[in-house]
Design a protein around this nucleic acid. Structure first.
Lengths: 191, 191
DNA sequence: TGGGGCATAGGACAAATGACCTCAAATGCT
DNA sequence: AGCATTTGAGGTCATTTGTCCTATGCCCCA
């Protein structure tokens, strides 16, 4: 739980005591590579902090193609955010890219913390704000950058993902085809 | 203020009294067509509810091209969210597409409401959650849909904007060039 | 009312990307 | 180890989109 505590204390003013008092709301979950944390169609009832490992969220677009929505690594929160927020069936599935250790809290317990603690309400808002900013940046990248620029950005910002995810995952995350990604990689290797 | 009250009460549990008590934190602002609500480089110190009219946010990408980031119409909140959240200089500028009437609250007053009222803290989180979901959908559209599909979606979801914004605004919002937008419109008119 | 300035439509060609495919290498499974 | 299956690289051609440019219409104002 230490990583989580450090993460939260960097994010907001939460005392050791406040954290210890709410600690029993969290539980550890272990996933093997390829295991699903959430299956599409189910309501996302959990918010998870990645202690170790990495995950990928994906969905199927209206052409029934599997699209990678995001990658998550150590020290970040993951959930099917929209489903979690609205408590409606999830479009996204979440899968472990490797053996992964999570610290998980249930929706009901989050709501309980929100309603009883200003500190946790604050954390909830700050986490949402962060998620928003990240998504805004992602949209801006999708809107402005060429396939090559997007690839180089991913390499730079989440380079370790390139070792863990396959070409299909990366291509759909960047919004290009495998063929285009292959061309980009060739171009880069020739420089 | 009535529209704002209705909007907030649809969003969260806030009593008439709670609203009345915090009403003096809001002020009305009027913009003429073409006037800036926020200029890039300045910290966004306000969150605004659009009572009447419409606005456009834009930024300059790394090729110094002006890119439309979003359109806002009556009954929604607008701000340079990232700048507002982090209280750092804004990348975005906000401009009125037509004569516009806003109900505005300052950052400091928002923070005061957050720290003293669970109801407002709740509203803050819910608004952020909504903004997140909208941004996630925008990213998904940018990643998955063809130029034509994106145009038809805009037409369907914010059709009134097509009358108020010019071709350049719409094209950069959709992430295509004017030429492509022109082709799309031709295609549609021929069907 | 006539001309400057601006916005939009669209022609022509170039560049980027997608669709479809094959082959070789890597991986997993028994 | 040996076989089946998956994965990634890249060839080829089609399609989409971008770049650059011109023509036309519209608006505003002197």
């Amino acid at each position: 739980m230490d990583k989580l505590k450090t993460f939260l204390q960097t994010l907001a003013q939460i005392t050791d005591k406040e954290f210890e008092d709410s600690k029993n709301n969290f539980q550890k979950v272990y996933l093997k590579k390829g295991e699903l944390l959430l299956q599409k169609g189910k309501v996302c009832k959990q918010m998870s902090f990645v202690n170790r490992g990495s995950l990928r969220t994906f969905y199927f677009n209206n052409k029934a193609e599997e699209i990678t929505h995001c990658f998550r690594t150590e020290g970040t929160f993951i959930s099917s955010y929209k489903s979690f927020i609205l408590q409606e069936p999830s479009i996204l599935s979440i899968i472990a890219l490797e053996d992964t250790e999570l610290v998980v809290i249930d929706y009901d317990k989050v709501q309980k913390l929100y309603s009883t603690s200003l500190a946790w309400q604050n954390i909830g808002r700050l986490l949402t704000e962060r998620a928003y900013i990240e998504m805004e940046e992602y949209a801006s990248v999708l809107n402005n950058e060429s396939a090559k620029e997007k690839y180089l950005r991913l390499l730079n910002e989440q380079g370790e993902i390139l070792q863990k995810a396959n070409v299909e995952h990366i291509a759909t995350y960047l919004g290009v085809t495998r063929r285009t990604l292959s061309r980009i990689r060739q171009e880069i290797s020739m420089q």
